[in-house]
Amino acid sequence: MAGFMQRVMPLAMLLILMPACGPSNEGAVTGQADSKKPEVALIMKSLANEFFSTMAQGAKKHQSEHSDQYDLIVNGIKNETDLGQQVALIEQMVAKKVSAIVIAPADSKAVVPALKRAEKAGVVVINIDNQLDAEVLKKAGVTIPFVGPDNRKGARLVGDALVARLEKGDQVAIIEGVQTAFNAQQRKLGFEDALGKGGMKIVSSQSAQWEMEKANRIAAAMISENTALKALLCANDSMALGAVAAVKAAGKSGKILVVGFDNISAIQSMIKDGRVLATADQHGGQLAVYGIEEALGRLSAGKNGAGNRETPVDLITADSLK
């Protein structure tokens, strides 16, 4: 047994250490790119979510138009919150020796160690959609660039559009996303920025876990409890759809304004006819493409590390859909 260990251990050590030889390995990646196309792995959250499937489709389209420049592997996880599966995907992609990973993290903290290992193995890592926690990145001693929209700014735009339609002191309520998610927190903060500036009174703020039906129930309860409620601010459009149904069921159509976020296809008819006042479009179809472009740029330049890039986010109202 001891003899076996003695023979195997150095080999194992070598295998573990080899990818960690920083500069030489990065050279290897670029060298590889010269001989053959780099391979980019796109790791998403749930592809069952329209937002992420649109994002993945955008990426696939981009790849087919630039098929001479890179290859693409797209992977998603089953549930939005299935961290274990996403970490396993990262490890598989590293084992597959992809050149770059573009990831929409399921959790802004827990995937950092796996991504750190990926970077150490010489993989270019780009963070899209849900920004990794700055504190955790700092503690882990790793810099992973974020390419994506400012969710707080987007929510502020939506909030401002709503505030313009209300009177000072009006009662409003927020329907939040999953409270542990960074983008959910940012959107809530963005809503609060706008509401605070406009002098609105936030009477309730609860999470509906990004889900339509849950939002419907919570919105119904908020409407029953706060008879003077004037607006519901929803952190995504699915929840806004649920809220619209609750407003209608309570017979308060037109009296309670609803805003959302994401600009999914199902929301657009509601924006046109006024059941939803506004939403934010962060160009979901392009989000992964921005990340892939950044990764390709870094691969050809042979550099890794800092440098966030902000992508556009636009306010969508009935006027902008005309």
């Binding site: 549930n79 889900e211 339509m212 039906e213 419907n216 699915s238 759809l241």
Partner: peptide, 11 residues
């Protein structure tokens, strides 16, 4: 109730 068909319904 929701006026929509949601493939994520009922989880």
């Amino acid at each position: 109730r929701l006026g929509s068909a949601d493939p994520n319904a009922g989880i």
